[in-house]
Amino acid sequence: MTAAIKDAVQAVDAAAVMALLAARPRLLALGEPTHGEEALLGLRNELFRQLVEREGYRTITIESDCMMSLVVDDYVTSGAGDLDEVMERGFSHGWGAFAGNRELVRWMRAHNDGRPAPERLRFAGFDGPLEITGAASPRQALTGLHGYLAARVGGGLLPCTAETLDRLLGADEPWTDPAAMMDPSRSVGQAPEARELRLLADDLVALLDAQTPHLIATSSPDEWERARMYGRTATGLLRYHFWFADTSPRRMAWLLGVRDSMMAANLLALAERGPALVSAHNGHLQRDRSSMRLGDLPLEWWSAGAIISARLGAEYAVLATALGTIRHHGVQTPPPDTVEGLLYALPEDRYVVDARRLAAVVGDLAPAPRVSPWYGYSPMDPAHVARYDGIVFVRDAAPS
C-alpha cells in the first residue's frame, strides 16, 4: 500500500502542482490544518515565488482582514510606510508577528522595486474585519463608500449625509464589545440605528451599481475595486452584527455562514484581477460543507471554498495541507490507520500527492479520522480527500 501511494507523490513545487490540474486556475488555494506554523508559511512563500516566476501569478491573498491589508498592499506596490509598522497595522489575527509573513512582505516589496505597475505583485486579505468572537465597527467601510460616492455622484442621489452616518454609527466601542459574544443583549446589531444603517448601506451599494459606467470612467481601477470592497464589507459587517444580537438557536450558524460568504465574495472579486494564490485554513477552502458542534448544538454551513467552487468550477483549485506531527503542541506520530499515518509512512519530509489517486488507493482501507489532542489543529477528514485537487504533506512542523 505504501508503494502504491508513493507512485502518486511528487516534490512540492509549482510544476508538480500544475501537473495535477487541467489548466491554470484563477484561484489556487493552499490550505493549512493549523495557523502560525513557520514550516507551512515557508512552504507557502516558496510556492508563491515559483508561481510568480513560472506561472504568471501576481496576487497572494491570506485569511486576514481585507481592510487592514490595504496597508500591506500599499507597501508592497509603492513602498509606502515602514515594514515594522506595516506588519503591525496591516494584519489581523496577530498574523503580522510571524516571521514567514514578514518575509513574504519583504520579498514582494523587493520584487516590485522598479517594476512597472502591471508587473507588480499585489497583496490582499480576504477575511472580513471580524472573528467568530466579535467584529469591527462598520464605520470605516460605510464612510469609505460614502466618501467615494460623494466625490463622484451628485449629492441629490446620495441616500444620506456623512453627518447622518456618523450620528447613527455613534461610538465604536459598543460595536466591538467583547462581552456580546456570550451575551447577545450587549450587541448593538439590532438597535434601531443599526437597522437604519443596514438600509442605508443597501442603498449606497445599489447606487454604486447603478452608477457603474460613470464611476469606472472617473476612477482608477484600484479606486473602483476598493469602493466595491467597502460596499461588500459594510453590508456584510452589518449583517454579522445583526446576527450577533440574535438570541435564537440559528445565531451561530448564521455567524459562521456570513463570515465564509464574505470571504467568498472577496475571493471572487480578486479572481477578476487575475490568477491568485489563496492561503487560509483548510476548513475555509474545502469544497465540502463545514460542520462543528458547539456544546450540544450541531452546526453546518457552506465554506468559502464550497461557494467559490460552485461559482468558478474548474477555475478554482484547492490543495489541502496535512501534517504528521506538531510535537511542541502535543501532536505526536499519527496512528497508521489515519490518512496522516499512511502519508507519514513515506520517507519524504514534504511532498504533494494527487488527492484523487490517493483516495482510490486508500478507499478500501476506510481510514479512521485522526483525533487531535490540541484544539488548534484540525486533522484531515478522510471523507474529504477525493474532493481536493492535491494534498501537500509536511512530515514534521518544528517549533518556530
Rank of each mutant, 00 (worst) to 15 (best):
V9W: 01
D84E: 14
G295R: 08
G31N: 03
E88P: 00
R239V: 02
T333P: 05
V86W: 00
R186V: 12
T143G: 00
L297H: 14
A124M: 03
E38W: 04
P335F: 09
A397H: 05
Y230V: 03
R289M: 15
M252A: 12
S69R: 00
V9R: 00
Q211V: 00
G170E: 08
D113W: 10
R273V: 11
P249R: 10
A99M: 05
A3N: 11
P138I: 06
L277G: 00
V72M: 01
T2Q: 14
P118I: 06
E163S: 14
H146F: 14
L358G: 01
L70R: 15
G56Q: 07
A179D: 14
P379C: 08
T325W: 00
T333D: 15
L238M: 09
L145W: 05
D349S: 13
I216M: 12
V394Y: 02
R139E: 10
M292V: 13
E103K: 11
T321I: 05
P138K: 06
R251K: 12
V188Q: 07
S248K: 09
G295I: 09
L215G: 02
M68C: 09
V362E: 03
D246W: 07
A191I: 02
A179M: 11
A16G: 07
A19E: 12
M18H: 14
E53L: 14
A141H: 01
E63A: 04
L319A: 04
L208I: 07
A304M: 09
K6I: 10
R167W: 11
A280G: 07
L199N: 13
L41F: 11
A210P: 05
T143P: 00
G295H: 09
R370A: 14
R356M: 10
F48G: 02
R106Q: 12
G295T: 10
R44M: 11
G147Q: 03
V76F: 03
T176M: 15
Q140P: 00
R24Y: 04
D389I: 02
V371F: 09
C66M: 13
Q332A: 14
G56H: 03
S290C: 14
A39N: 08
L285E: 01
G170K: 06
L130P: 01
I62R: 05
V371M: 11
